[in-house]
Amino acid sequence: MRIRLEQLSPLQFHAIIIARQTVFITEQHFCCPDSDAHDTHCWHLSALYGDKIAAYLRVIDPGEKYPEPSIGRLLTTQAYRRTGLGKRIMQVAIANIAELYPGQAIRISAQAYLQPFYANLGFATIGKEYLEEGIPHLEMLRLPNT
């Protein structure tokens, strides 16, 4: 279900933040706050198992971070990795973006080691590798109807 921040219940938002902190700060050692100003300019998509987050991502509105809509903060919690859930939530997000923003490309900042995963979803690398929080990243773009 896609939902804006202001529509999330406090418990839903808390579950999202716990999942994001666990993956990005605890597991991947990001040294900056995970929550940012973009959270208020996006819709959030979660896959739940009971009341726990199994997978999550956010779609940032066009013009907020990039001219195009942008997918970010994709995660699959440890218990659900290698099940195809990450790919499935990305497919749902791409379909929602096509519905909400027809004819627009999608831009992402992807961890470099995940380039093949995103390439299989139609994203192409643009630009050179760069470091974000000490982790190699690539900017990638998915053209409409790809």
Rank of each mutant, 00 (worst) to 15 (best):
L5Y: 07
G50R: 01
R88V: 02
P102L: 00
Y66P: 03
H44Q: 01
D51V: 00
A98D: 06
E6S: 04
I97K: 01
I97T: 03
P136A: 14
Q7M: 04
Q28V: 05
Y130S: 07
I135A: 08
P67Q: 13
R142P: 02
F24C: 13
P33N: 03
T26K: 12
T146L: 04
A19F: 08
D39K: 14
A55I: 00
A93C: 12
L45Q: 12
N145S: 10
I108H: 10
R107M: 11
A110V: 02
Y80M: 10
S109M: 08
M90H: 03
F30N: 05
P69R: 10
P10C: 08
Q104E: 02
R88S: 12
S9Y: 03
P136F: 10
A98I: 00
I135H: 14
I94Y: 06
Q91W: 07
L138V: 10
N145F: 12
S109L: 04
Q12M: 10
A110F: 01
A124I: 12
Q104K: 07
I135V: 14
I25L: 13
E133I: 06
Q78S: 15
P116Q: 05
E132A: 15
E64R: 15
I60G: 12
F30P: 06
A98E: 03
N145P: 10
R58Y: 04
A15S: 14
T40D: 07
Y113S: 02
E139Y: 14
P69T: 10
A47M: 09
N96K: 15
F13R: 12
K128C: 04
L85Y: 07
L121A: 09
M1G: 10
E129P: 03
T83E: 10
T77A: 01
P102A: 00
K52T: 04
A55E: 00
E6D: 12
P33Y: 07
D51N: 05
I97N: 02
S9D: 01
P67E: 08
F123A: 01
T76F: 02
I17P: 08
T26H: 15
S9K: 04
R81Y: 10
A98H: 06
R81H: 14
L57H: 00
R81W: 11
A112K: 12
P116C: 06
T146S: 11
R107A: 09
S35W: 07
D39L: 15
R2D: 04
K128P: 03
I53N: 02
A93T: 09
P67R: 15
R73F: 05
T83H: 13
G103C: 01
G134L: 05
R73P: 07
R88F: 06
N145G: 15
A95L: 06
Y113Q: 08
G84I: 02
Q111R: 08
A15I: 06
S9G: 14
A112N: 14
I25H: 11
L48G: 05
I71C: 14
Y101P: 00
F24I: 11
L75F: 01
G84Q: 02
L8G: 13
E139Q: 13
W43Y: 09
Y49S: 10
C32S: 13
S9M: 03
